[in-house]
Nucleic acid binder design. Structure first.
Lengths: 227, 227, 227, 227
DNA sequence: ATGTAAGCGAGACGGTACGTCAGGTCTTGTA
DNA sequence: TACAAGACCTGACGTACCGTCTCGCTTACAT
């Protein structure tokens, strides 16, 4: 997807729905419809990118309707946020390399790759862009989305703390913020391809965290998953 | 402006143009028109934010017209980029505090304040958002805009190098990137108000840069300006 | 209601249902529900007019549900037709003034007043409007509704015939049609307030009917009710 | 069209525009666009009736756009009113038969036929229906449209007055109203086919007008056109 | 007495259309 | 030839109402 986007070409795409008809299952939210919408959203982001993403196209593709979508999601951004988190939940396996440095590198590399290879990067880019246009979306992004997402990075540090590799403290929050900010920066400028930038950044962050001073000795720990 | 944004309220604003009538000055670009457009753009960003910014409103406010605007700028983003750089050129005085740490803190604090207090933050937010929708804009942003802007941060390091406070090297580029990324992160999530976050971040970055190891002794140097 | 209608104001209205809860009374149509729906329909027409009338609002107001409504009425128009006829059955007292002219004037005046003062005019307006959108409704309107309603005007003539004031004939049908058409015309253009138009119209119709030539002498007759 | 309308079938119709693209001709209303829209509206009414008439379809068919349409017409009804009047202006030739009775019959017969055979009847039906939903439209209909249209019937009477066949007076206004009302009645109930109803109606109206009493002798007069 | 069939409220659903907004292009007429 | 003006198409937005569907509950009636 990187840089490819030709605007008009994209808009045209967004495929046809199968002739199947999903109807109400009573006075209760239809999980099938819910899933179909999220899936269709992911598909569209994947195939034509955010530029070609419209609620109209989404409704058509999901074999659903605009009112149904708007019944469940405040707006485009809210929907895409859910699409993103949904997939993120399931996507990223953390590798336990035994060291904080190794874990962070592995995690960031995994994240950047996921962003770059799937529609996920498109999704997050679009959420950030929308948040610049709508205060409520920005709020949600800042107060809920980011904390949830950052937690997955934070986890890696927590593991290191448990392992005795690191002392907890405010420095850890700063380090997490640095890593997230840097990832956003690469995402928003479409430089996710520069994976070789990850290692030196992690090193700088860890040095900044003064990791070595806290070093005791590794403790056995079972791996954890997530972003 | 921080957090204030009520969408409808903003959209409504975007004031009336002064009754002045500027016309063509012949077969040459009218600098007055040019200036009026940039000024009007700044005003709108200031008063109603990016949300309320439309080319229509801009033309009206500048007492100009859409075709004239499009004659000189490729699109909305290109225009706003120029607005931003134009002002940035003139806005930031760097203080020479005698130490890299002091300079960086002063510079970042100045930048965040400028973003937060003027329309500049709005402008940059909008440029970044637009870049997510248009490949050409992203290109411009990545390949020209960011390098130019980062240079102003880089300058501070260069001065420290000249001063003998620091050895040059790839770590410096990383440090610059970290500072820029962190600033963007705060800008895009409207957390520019948290100025107290600056010091610890700078400290972390400098530790990551291993600044102390490179320390020799300060050398007199005259101040430099910019972002 | 005449002329009052401000569209958005009306749409907003359509009040809350009383907290009462009607439920099924078994495998048989609940007359209470039936009545509640017709009453709610009348209320809505009265308060917010046809413009603010929606099946959704009706169901809410009647403390019922859309499927229940659609179980018993083919569509909106069918329901409103019943509402109208239901009330009409009970509403109009014919006065026996002793003369055809007096009876017609009294009848029309009563009709126009009833239309204007109650929701009835709104109801009929909406039926006519709906009939323009749906062939089946038009059919019902033309073949059943109008004949039934016109019969009440026809009655007045029949009485005159019985009285010996008038000879029956095709002219009577024409006269009835003229009076109905004129009433519709005033209803649809919201000029029911112009009651002074009634007398001259009736006179013209009677002259057209050549009533005087048929005149014998009055015969005693007891009054009849209805439109 | 009588009764035929199958809703979904109709909606599907509404033909394809030619691939040609009409663009702005400068800061002035494009008469070509204006004409194209009115023509397309007439076509759609003709082909699929009012039920299948949508602004979307109209824009597509006229090779224009919704915003352009809404720039020039307040809403659907306003547009259709113009379509109707536009055509009416050009459509009906009055025949001068030498007698008021003959002229009226000819005029009504022409009107009913025009309504029934062209899209004009559909147009007027839809205007009347819309007027029941929107106060502004009703206003326009009552205060401007109807007086203008009625004038064409009035003309026939004026001619008779000039001819000495008739004395002017309030009775004439009533007669005009009766004829218009009756025509509407037949239009709205889709009984325009009953042309044989025209003659007796005209006779009744003329008798009601007491035309014979005013009779002097015919005066030469040149024919006039219109509804 | 109990199982069945229907009425009922709730509310989600697909669908169609509405009227609005912004972006970027086009052409005219004036200076 | 630059400019103001403003009409134009494109494409998307979010909302309203329609008539349908299914659920789970409740009750009359026939077995």
């Amino acid at each position: 997807m990187q840089d490819a986007a030709q605007k008009p070409a994209r808009t045209a795409a967004a495929g046809r729905h199968p002739p199947r008809a999903r109807k109400s299952i009573g006075a209760v939210r239809s999980p099938e419809t819910h899933r179909a919408i999220l899936a269709a959203a992911a598909d569209i982001l994947d195939e034509v990118g955010y530029t070609g993403f419209s609620m109209e196209a989404l409704a058509r593709r999901a074999n659903s309707s605009k009112p149904t979508i708007y019944r469940w999601w405040r707006n485009k951004a809210a929907l895409i946020m859910e699409v993103y988190e949904d997939a993120n939940e399931a996507a990223l396996a953390g590798t336990d390399t035994g060291s904080l440095r190794g874990d962070l590198i592995s995690r960031l590399r995994g994240l950047w790759t996921w962003w770059d290879d799937s529609w996920a990067g498109e999704a997050l880019r679009s959420v950030i862009a929308e948040a610049q246009l709508d205060a409520a979306t920005l709020d949600e992004l800042r107060n809920r989305f980011i904390p949830r997402r950052s937690a997955f990075v934070r986890l890696v540090f927590d593991r290191a703390v448990a392992r005795g590799e690191l002392r907890d403290g405010p420095g850890v929050d700063i380090a997490v913020a640095q890593l997230v900010a840097m990832s956003w920066f690469h995402l928003l400028t479409r430089r996710l391809g520069e994976r070789e930038a990850i290692e030196p950044h992690v090193d700088a962050v860890l040095k900044g965290l003064d990791a070595d001073k806290a070093y005791r000795r590794p403790v056995k720990q079972k791996p954890v998953r997530g972003t």
